[in-house]
Amino acid sequence: MKPETKTILVILTVFSMMLSGCIETASDSIEDNDMGDEIDDTPLPNCELNNSCFEPEQQLVVVPHSDGCDNINPIHCMLPFPSDVFLVDDETKETGKRIHYSPTSLPGSGSKSMIEIPLINQMDGFSTSTQIMTAFSTSPDLEMAANQNNIMPSMDVQHQTLLVNLENGDLIEHWVELDARAEDGEQVILHIRTIKHLEYNTEYGVLIHGLSDDSGEMIQPSEALTAIINGDTTDSTDIE
Rank of each mutant, 00 (worst) to 15 (best):
I120M: 14
P3R: 02
S52D: 00
A145M: 10
E167N: 08
I151R: 12
E91A: 05
M133W: 05
L142H: 00
L9S: 03
S215V: 07
L79S: 00
P45T: 06
D90G: 07
R181D: 02
N46D: 10
G205K: 06
N201D: 09
P153N: 06
D37L: 14
N230S: 05
D90S: 07
T7H: 12
E24M: 14
K112I: 01
H159V: 02
K196F: 00
S154P: 01
P103A: 05
L12I: 11
E48I: 15
T237V: 13
G68Q: 11
L163W: 08
Q58H: 02
H65Y: 14
M155R: 00
L60Q: 11
L60W: 01
Q59A: 14
D179N: 06
I30L: 15
F86V: 10
S139T: 02
P221I: 04
I72E: 09
V176H: 02
F86Q: 03
I39S: 13
P221H: 09
S102H: 08
T234L: 14
I189E: 01
D84G: 07
S111G: 06
E38K: 11
G125H: 06
I120N: 09
G210W: 06
Q59H: 08
E55M: 05
G21A: 06
H76D: 10
M133N: 11
D156Y: 03
T202D: 05
I23M: 13
V157P: 15
T128D: 09
I11Q: 14
S222R: 04
I192D: 01
D40R: 01
R193A: 12
T134G: 01
L12S: 10
G21F: 15
Q122C: 11
G110P: 11
I219L: 03
Y204T: 09
D37Y: 15
D89A: 12
M218G: 08
K112F: 12
S105L: 13
E143G: 04
E91V: 06
P140C: 06
S52K: 08
